[in-house]
């Protein structure tokens, strides 16, 4: 279980927002800033955070949609930048992505069968004669029927489209799937269906998930370990039971207390002051210091590093 599948070391991605006349960057958005973590084989690693915290950017770096500004990615022990072209291709095949918006992630001009067949064909995984059979198999895996193969995406509801997106990701037999908010655009009753499907597929295909979401309930349900991000930084990583029972970083505490919980006594809420600051000019020192209710001396001066405070529980906070 504890075999590391993917390891990320000091990964950063900066976007240049504005340059001066010489093309020198004058304002830079630090979407992901020196993030390190590891995902074990067969686990679901949850990544939570509010909008603009860089979780989606992180996911897109892993599937090679963005090139990182600095930092290293190890996949199955091999460093990504050291790979040759062929190995890189196989890396890309091994890591797939499920997108957030099922209305935007399927090409409206292709039938769903063609959408699922495409990755098999371009990666030459199967002889053409067997592709069709595989497509039908994948459709069945995600709970769609054979006769829907030749329909177009607009003929489907959001939940069904998300199933097509899942089938497309499965088509190349990936090892890791980055699920970028796969249920947040869906209705509550459909969310449960898709979450259960993801759970089943994980068992069936021995998958590893990086599960990105802003809903803490959803992340808790599906993940084994959870990382919390705030303004491009990982602030806490812990096994889910530990994280939800004993959150250490004040931001995690506030995040957990902000969620409305049904059928429990109305709890005392930590209401954070202010808004998430802009990632273009984040506060100095700890990024959370401008909103933190436990802020003290060193917070505004130094950026805290991730420390292991108890087995497998990592926190970046000056309190620890």
């Amino acid at each position: 279980m504890n075999e590391v599948l993917m390891k990320v070391q000091d990964l950063s991605k900066y976007f240049t927002i504005d340059t001066d006349w010489r093309g020198k960057p004058v304002s830079v958005l630090k979407a992901v800033d020196e993030v390190s973590f590891a995902i074990n084989k067969g686990e679901a690693f949850g990544l939570v955070g509010e909008s603009g915290c860089g979780k989606t950017t992180l996911g897109k770096i892993l599937v090679n949609l963005y090139t990182p500004t600095s930092g290293k990615i190890f996949f199955e022990g091999k460093e990504l930048s050291a790979l040759n072209k062929k190995q890189r291709r196989s890396y890309c095949k091994d890591i797939q992505m499920i997108f957030q918006d099922p209305y935007a992630s399927l090409n409206p001009r292709m039938t769903i069968g063609d959408i699922i067949a495409e990755p098999i064909i371009i990666n030459k995984l199967l002889p053409m004669s067997e592709v069709e059979e595989r497509v039908i198999f994948l459709l069945n895996c995600v709970g769609l029927a054979r006769h829907q193969r030749n329909r177009f995406p607009h003929e489907f509801s959001g939940g069904q489209r998300q199933r097509v997106g899942i089938a497309r990701a499965l088509a190349v037999e990936p090892k890791l799937i980055v699920c970028d908010e796969p249920v947040s655009a869906l209705d509550v009753s459909i969310q449960a269906q898709v979450l259960n499907l993801l759970d089943d597929l994980k068992e069936e295909f021995k998958l590893t998930y990086l599960f990105i979401a802003h809903g803490l309930g959803v992340v808790k349900h599906i993940s084994d370990r959870v990382g919390v991000m705030y303004l491009g930084k990982l602030v806490e990583i812990a096994p889910k039971k530990e994280l939800y029972a004993n959150p250490l970083n004040p931001y995690t505490q506030a995040l957990l207390s902000a969620i409305p919980v049904i059928n429990s006594e109305k709890k005392e809420r930590i209401i954070l002051k202010g808004d998430v600051p802009s990632p273009i000019n984040p506060p100095a020192g700890c990024r959370f210091s401008s909103r933190c209710f436990k802020e003290f001396g060193p917070c505004k001066l130094n950026t805290p590093k991730l420390k292991e405070v108890s087995p497998d529980h990592w926190v970046a906070c000056h309190l620890f």
Binding site: S189, L216, G217, K241, I262
Partner: peptide, 12 residues
């Protein structure tokens, strides 16, 4: 059904 299908953070 709706109430049961929501993943709750206090659900172990």
């Amino acid at each position: 059904g709706l109430l049961q299908s929501i993943p709750q953070i206090d659900n172990e």
